[in-house]
Amino acid sequence: MPEVAGSLWSVAAGQQLEAIQRLQAAGLRRLHWDMTDGRFAKPGGFTASQALALTQATGLAAEAHIMAEDPTSDIDAWSEFCDLIVVHAESPRWAQAVDRISARGCIPGLAISPDTPAAVVPADMAVLCMSITPGTAGSAFNDAVLNKVSALRNASSERRIGLDGGVQRRHVERAVEAGADWFVVGTDLFLNDAVHVWNDILRPND
């Protein structure tokens, strides 16, 4: 069964804790925290301290997605409460960031933007495929990303492969067939009132 990580990028600050608790009651078990440096992607997302407070308030597992030209200086703060930290392959210092993530005892992952080819990702690394331009939450899912997912899965049968950007429940079956096993979902969980259509994934044993 694929895993869903909830992204609160588009949820207003005063509504975030309530939104998480509502989704937690529906079966959500993982939070996805986005951070940008305002250069690699437009300003938005969360600081590590903001994400830590909300994560601790709910007790859910957490992962971080750092959209920064140089993510290395941000690793330590996020590693305090995230088990997975994703940085971008388009960052010139992604390899140094991955080494730091591993040194901090977390799982490293590489995100790739829509125009970045699958071949840049080492076969032994978790990868998060962006269907939209980083930092443009709420944009529509681009089906072309499924070809990239297939290429990544063909290169490695073992690694974790995720999709991020405009993901809706109706995309899941085709994405799983392509090889995805991890979905970052924001709008369709938190803003579209579509939680009920995710029930079979959020609560697979009910």
Rank of each mutant, 00 (worst) to 15 (best):
Q56N: 11
I85V: 14
G179K: 00
S102V: 14
L17V: 10
Q15F: 15
G45M: 04
H65Q: 07
S157Y: 07
D37M: 08
T55R: 01
A95T: 10
A26Y: 09
G138Y: 08
Q21T: 14
M1W: 07
C82L: 11
D188I: 07
R170V: 15
G105Q: 06
V86Y: 06
F46R: 01
E69D: 14
Q15L: 15
D70G: 10
A180D: 05
H32M: 05
A175W: 04
Q96I: 09
H65M: 09
L110G: 05
L189P: 13
P114G: 04
V121I: 15
T116F: 03
D115C: 05
A41V: 06
I201G: 04
R104W: 06
A126F: 09
V167C: 09
R160M: 15
A123Q: 07
S79K: 04
S157G: 14
D99E: 15
D34G: 04
F40T: 02
G162S: 11
A111C: 12
A25T: 14
L128W: 05
W182T: 07
L52Q: 13
G135L: 11
G165I: 05
E3M: 10
G45H: 01
G186W: 08
A178L: 08
G59E: 13
M35F: 09
L28R: 00
G44A: 04
H171T: 09
S131R: 01
L28H: 05
L128N: 01
A64K: 00
L128E: 04
Q16G: 05
I201R: 00
F40W: 08
I101R: 00
C129S: 02
A180W: 02
I66W: 04
D188G: 04
P117N: 02
V172G: 08
R153T: 11
H32P: 05
L23W: 07
A126M: 10
I107N: 00
A126K: 00
R22V: 15
D193T: 10
E3H: 03
T55K: 00
W78H: 02
A89Q: 13
W198S: 10
R174N: 14
E173K: 03
P71D: 03
W33P: 06
I75G: 03
A144L: 13
W9A: 02
